[in-house]
Structure formats: structure tokens, C-alpha cells
Amino acid sequence: MMTDRANLHHLSHETVAALWAAAAPVELPLPGEPPCTLQIDPTAGTLHLRTAYQLPEPDVGRLRNVDFHAVVDGNDDVAEMVVRVKDGGLQTSYGFLAAIISQLQQGARPMAEAVATAVAQFRDLTMARSPLPIEREIGLLGELLFLEYCIAEFGPQAAVNAWHGPLAEEHDFAIGGVHVEVKSTVSDRRVHVIHGLDQLEPLAGVPLVLLSVQLTRSSPESGRTLPAVIAAVRELAGAQRGSLDVKLAILDWDDLEADLHDTPWAVRSAPLAYAIDEDFPAITSDRLQRAVPHLGQISDVSYRVDLTDRDPTALPLTFQNFTEWSQQ
């Protein structure tokens, strides 16, 4: 259907929603220079802005939900911006294209500049999507599995408050009179990466335990995805959901990227604990201070430790059920 007249800047949100709800494609010619048309296509779930083609082309290659095409319409070269409308995002998508048209017609900006300005205004719609690196995904998954267990054992407030990993503290958890550093791996061997000289440095008078969790790719029937674990922990957190979400955000978790984390994971073997004592192979500031001059001038220390052939220690009594719970 082609309307006789339309002015984008006079379209209310209600009008756009009504046209979308009609479930039929509609094209709206927009007065002004350069001439533009707005196409609403509910069947495809997209909005289209078409106008005269010009160089340089807008750079949208790394943007999510937004595409650019150069097309030929008769004898004319046409630039087409396409926005994919996600759940509940119709008005934001419409506003993004309205901002581009305003820059084109009222600001007399070239296409590339108009798009760049709109991108800055609507960054949440257009920013590039990318999943967490696999190392960070499995690291977060291991911590959340332990947090899920701690909520059941200690309650939501104590458990969420005890999760220090996102806060750049030395250790992941401080709960039950013990500090716990959770390390996850997908390797056949219990090889873990230690970041920095303080990660395995016990605080005076506080026991420190490294909890080794081996994960493996699984099936939907026997494993859980990272988003599924996050959903479960959020439900258990109850009134602590806000504090939990703040910590997830610090770790760069974004629900808009949830579909990119679709791998089901399962615990490969029983988690094992290792007491961080004088016999543990840890590189710490205290140990290096005795051997390395000017240690403060060294930064970004990371190393791998293979615990496969090392005898584990018993988990503290408050956590001993975690091994059995994690493999249910």
C-alpha cells in the first residue's frame, strides 16, 4: 500500500505502532530534500529508509540490527538503510531512522555523516554484538555455578554479597570464613590460568581454596547454557537481583548477547579443592619479593598451573556438598 502523503516528523508513535500492527507492508513518501521514503514491513520485521545514493557510504558493517544497501531503481541509484526490529524495539528503530532523515533534510548532512550522528544517539540499537570470549564464558559459568550453590546454602543476600569476583577483589568469594578462588577449564587436565600476583595470595588468618571446575560441551538434555544458568541464579537471588545484575554488568554480560551463548555446558568431573598453602605452586608478591629486585616495576603477570597430578584437599565443611550438587 502506498500512502498519498506523509510527514515523518508528524508521525506519532501511536501511528507507527498502528501501521506495524496492520501486518501489511506500507511505504510512506516523505516531503523534503533530499526526497526520502519510509517503508514499514511488519511481515519481514524491518523498517527501510530509501533516499538518493551518495558517497561516501555509511559505515554500518559492525553494527547490529542495521544494514546498508546500494540499489538501482530504474535509472536512479538508491541508498537503503534497513533496521531489523527486535522485540519491543519498534519505536527505537523508528526513532533511529527519523534521526537520520532529520540530519539529511533539516541538517543538510551527507548520508555517511547523518548515519554516524544517529548511531551516536542510538548506540544501544546499533552497537556491535559480540559474545564473551570462551575463556570468560567458562570462567563466569564456573563462578555462577558456585554462586547458585551458595545461595541455596547461605541465602541470597549472604551469597550475592560474598561474590567479590566482579569487584576486582583478590578472590572470587569470601563466605563461611573462607576465601574461594573458582577456576574453570575445558581442558582434559586441570590446567588453570592465574592472573596477577595477588590472586593466590591468602589474606592473613583467612584460609584460601582454589576450586577447580572442569566443564565440557554437552547436549541441551544434559547441559545448561550460560544464559540458562544466569536465569536460574537471578530467580534464586530474589530481592538481591539488582545487586546481582550490577555485578554481571561489570563482567560485561549483556542480555542482548544471550543468543550468542547457546553452547550447553556440563560439569565434566567432580570439582576438586586445593588449599593455597606453603606447598602450593603459586607465584605471589611475597615469594617474589625475596628473589626479584624492584618487583613493583613488574606488571601483568599471568601463568598456568597444572593441578592434574596434585592431591586435592577436602573442601571446607560448608562447601562439601558442592561436588555432589554440581553433578546433578
Rank of each mutant, 00 (worst) to 15 (best):
V246R: 13
A228S: 11
T308Q: 10
P293Y: 04
H261D: 08
V292N: 03
S222P: 00
R241S: 10
W265G: 00
Q297I: 08
A266N: 06
W265Q: 00
A249F: 03
L236R: 15
Q289C: 09
P227R: 04
K247F: 01
D254W: 05
Q297R: 14
R224H: 09
P293F: 07
V246T: 13
V292D: 02
D262N: 15
S285Q: 14
A270M: 14
W265L: 11
A232Q: 07
L260S: 03
H261I: 07
D309F: 01
R234P: 01
A228L: 05
F280T: 09
P264S: 02
G238W: 02
G296I: 00
D277R: 08
L244T: 01
D252G: 03
L248S: 03
G223H: 00
V305Q: 05
E221V: 03
I276L: 08
G223R: 00
D277E: 11
W253L: 04
W253D: 04
V267S: 05
L272D: 10
D252W: 07
Y303P: 07
P227N: 06
S222K: 09
P312Y: 02
R290S: 12
T263N: 02
A258D: 05
E278K: 14
P281E: 11
I276H: 06
L251I: 03
L288C: 07
D311G: 06
H294L: 14
S299K: 12
A270D: 14
I250G: 02
I250W: 09
A282V: 08
A273Y: 11
I276F: 07
A282N: 10
S269Q: 15
A231K: 04
R224K: 11
V229M: 13
P281G: 10
R304S: 15
A291V: 15
D286R: 15
L248K: 02
D300E: 10
A239G: 11
I230P: 01
Y303Q: 07
L251W: 08
F280I: 08
A291G: 10
V267R: 06
Y274W: 02
V301L: 11
Q240W: 05
G238M: 02
E221K: 06
R268T: 02
A232G: 00
T284I: 09
R287T: 10
A249K: 11
R268C: 04
D306K: 10
H294S: 14
R287Y: 08
E278Y: 09
A249D: 07
S302E: 07
D279L: 13
E257H: 12
Q240M: 14
I230V: 13
Q289T: 12
L248M: 05
L248N: 03
R241I: 09
A266Y: 02
A249T: 11
